[in-house]
Design a protein around this nucleic acid. Structure first.
Lengths: 124, 124, 124, 124
DNA sequence: GTGGTCTAGACCACG
DNA sequence: GTGGTCTAGACCACT
């Protein structure tokens, strides 16, 4: 697992943790059934409050990525992989839609937009 | 001018005002040199606090969209049009880049992504 | 509004608050669009920590009963009434199903069970 | 004896064991005077900690279902059958009462409630 | 050891 | 005034 937190970021710490863990699940670094680090040990590792890691885990559980059992720990849920994939695709489509929206306001047509996309795809 | 505010939105009201005015500038509804409504009259129109409209105007001035002269009012700045255009294009490119990023993680190539873009472009 | 909390109960305080408020919504004491008491004032009234009332409100929001806007407060959601009704009916059916389950284990048929129900209905 | 434990359940494991054994007594699978499996062998069978099965046996003894003699083992108590039956009936009545409570809040009368009960009885 | 709940305080952004 | 986030510490139940 590889979680990096920035205090300077404007996104809350617990949200950063959520994102990192979602990414690890999407990457396959965390797999279905795996045990998550305990909220306390993760808090220690990241030098944040236990409450902060707990909040992150609560969000992950609410979204269905993990399942938590008192006294046992938290585990990556069976449907986590599918959820992560779904989330990724919908995120991509939202960005595309937003770009399309703006391109329309700029008076661009589909071809001009695709040309732009091509240029950016090559650059990176 | 056409400014609509939603209390239900999760973006702060002052930010909504900023966005609306930027859009009006980009649309050409507000043009360089035009006089802006006074902070107080706008607050009254939108049924929000004067503090809120003041904050919006401060942001607009900080970003260079408007210029405020004490005792005279606020005016759309000379470079506002260029700024709005720039902002729009950069916004669009950021969305495209974000989509490209995710598509790479999903193992898609440029053609597959463009196909997706086409489909979405057609739908809307 | 009428919220009563018991420290002696084995259900967590925040859950008690959630239940009370749901009941108020179901009763019609809280209606769609109504402003909720602020988490701080409620905490003061009930002599509990702000965190506890906050947690209750978070749960209510997650279940769709209320909507919270930073800096403005929490409001009873438009669909709250329907949700409360649904929840009540499903709760009643779950109790009936549980009773049926046990009655089957006891070798009772539908008529015997209904007889029992009648007797209890009369008593209360 | 037939005890099945679910780690995914939100009820504690020791409580699940208690419930299962009560059910076995109510079913007649365990009869008065029967010897219970030893705490250690049961723990091994269920792949749980000895502490957990010990806690379950303590609860069963506290409720009068079993009796433990040091060095000899645990035995199903003489009144276990009556207790199990009693417990079942009271559980059923509690569910019925809860359903009645809610039905009253919904403005239903006895006939409407019985109709609902009939429908559910038929379904299962 | 694990998580679940609760406390009393703090600073921030928004209106 | 409002909620959003975070801290450091506590006690409890379960394994």
């Amino acid at each position: 697992m590889n979680i990096v937190i920035s205090n300077a970021s404007d996104t809350p710490i617990y949200a950063q943790i959520v994102e990192c863990i979602c990414r690890e699940i999407a990457n396959g670094a965390l797999r279905e059934g795996d045990m998550m680090p305990s909220i306390r040990s993760l808090a220690k590792d990241l030098s944040v409050s236990v409450i902060t890691t707990k909040k992150a885990y609560e969000q992950l559980e609410a979204r269905g990525y993990i399942e938590t059992r008192a006294g046992k720990g938290s585990f990556v849920s069976a449907r986590s992989g599918a959820l992560a994939l779904e989330h990724k695709i919908s995120g991509m489509e939202q960005h595309l839609l937003a770009a399309i929206d703006i391109s329309r306001e700029l008076g661009m047509n589909a071809d001009e937009l695709k040309q732009r996309l091509d240029a950016l795809f090559g650059e990176v």
